[in-house]
């Protein structure tokens, strides 16, 4: 396994939690909900998944637990943001801070001062076909959930872009009165979007904990949730574009590691900035402004036309 092959493989694996969380956030944003608490949701999903795998020794159960944790938080967030018109900014920040604190507390309660690690890694179903030079490992050497995650994002992209449900979702964010006029309850649409979106964010946290690193630790996400929010915005809430950007982000991070293995002497601080600078360049190169849903972050009041 060469350095280049390893970097390409790792870039795809590390893109999975990010693209799931960003896609989940994008679904919420499309409906008009801005959740700044993705970091907390990912941590909750990660902890739930780790404990579930620890108890059941099943990755499927773990991933399901992560998604359920995310969906439950999404339900709470959606209800508070719509039925009670609570400030989405306050709710989101509360989720980010509360999620970090609560998961740290629960982890300590359960595991004390130890740091358990998962004994077994996830299987790689297409490992036999990974001998193709350079891209073989990246395409066929991945753990099975990577393929599921890609399918989920492709499906989410299709639903958002092409389906009637996606049309309603987008309308709930851009023109909620049109949705209401069509006889559909905007709040219900947004709550369902929050649930499904945060289920994906929870699944992203689960993927990080049990698929990518193989353990949970307080603060494990180290800012991935916040990067996911930015990615959802610069990816114009399009899951397919988000997936590509997440992969580019992973590749740029890997490039920093590769550079350090060469004779080039570049300061670490500069290498740290590289993925972010690269993303900004990409956004500029794409040549189109970031467009946000018209009512993003605003509560919907049926009585007033001002969203």
């Amino acid at each position: 396994m060469s350095v280049l092959e390893t970097l390409l493989m790792a870039a795809v694996l590390s893109a999975v939690p990010l693209m799931l969380a960003a896609t989940g956030e994008a679904i919420g944003q499309r409906s008009g909900l801005l959740n700044l608490g993705v970091e907390g949701v990912m941590l909750a999903g990660g902890l739930a998944a780790f404990v579930a795998v620890d108890l059941s020794s099943s990755f499927v159960v773990g991933l399901g637990a992560g998604a359920c944790a995310g969906a439950s938080i999404g339900l709470g967030f959606g209800v508070l943001a719509t039925r009670f018109a609570a400030s989405q900014i306050v709710l989101g920040l509360g989720l980010a801070l509360g999620g970090a604190g609560l998961t740290g507390f629960l982890f300590r309660e359960r595991y004390g001062l130890t740091q358990p690690l998962l004994a077994q890694g996830m299987e790689r179903p297409f490992d036999g076909a990974a001998d193709i030079p350079v891209v073989g490992l990246m395409l066929f050497g991945q753990k099975w959930f990577v393929y599921i995650a890609v399918c989920l994002v492709v499906l989410a992209g299709y639903l958002v872009r092409r389906s009637r449900a996606g049309l309603v979702l987008r309308a709930a964010g851009d023109s909620p009165f049109a949705v209401e006029a069509a006889g559909i309850d905007v709040s219900t649409v947004r709550i369902l979007a929050a649930m499904s979106g945060q289920a994906l964010a929870g699944l992203g946290g689960a993927a990080l904990a049990i698929v990518e690193v193989g353990f949970f630790a307080p603060g494990l996400t180290v800012g991935i949730g916040f990067i996911a929010i930015a990615l959802a915005m610069i990816g114009r809430q399009d899951p397919w574009l988000i997936a590509i950007l997440a992969l580019v982000f992973g590749l740029l991070r890997g490039a920093g590691t590769a550079i350090q293995l060469t004779d080039l002497r570049i300061q670490t601080e500069l290498l740290d900035v590289m993925p972010y600078a690269g993303m900004l360049l990409l956004v500029v190169a794409l040549g189109r402004r970031v467009r946000l849903p018209a009512t993003l972050g605003l509560a919907y009041h049926r009585e007033s036309r001002g969203a």
């Binding site: 590390s14 939690p17 990518e212 690193v213 630790a217 494990l220 180290v222 890997g254 590691t257 293995l261």
Partner: peptide
């Protein structure tokens, strides 16, 4: 930890 893992693999 996620980046530590990637760097170590490399």
């Amino acid at each position: 930890a996620p980046n530590a893992r990637r760097v170590t693999e490399t």
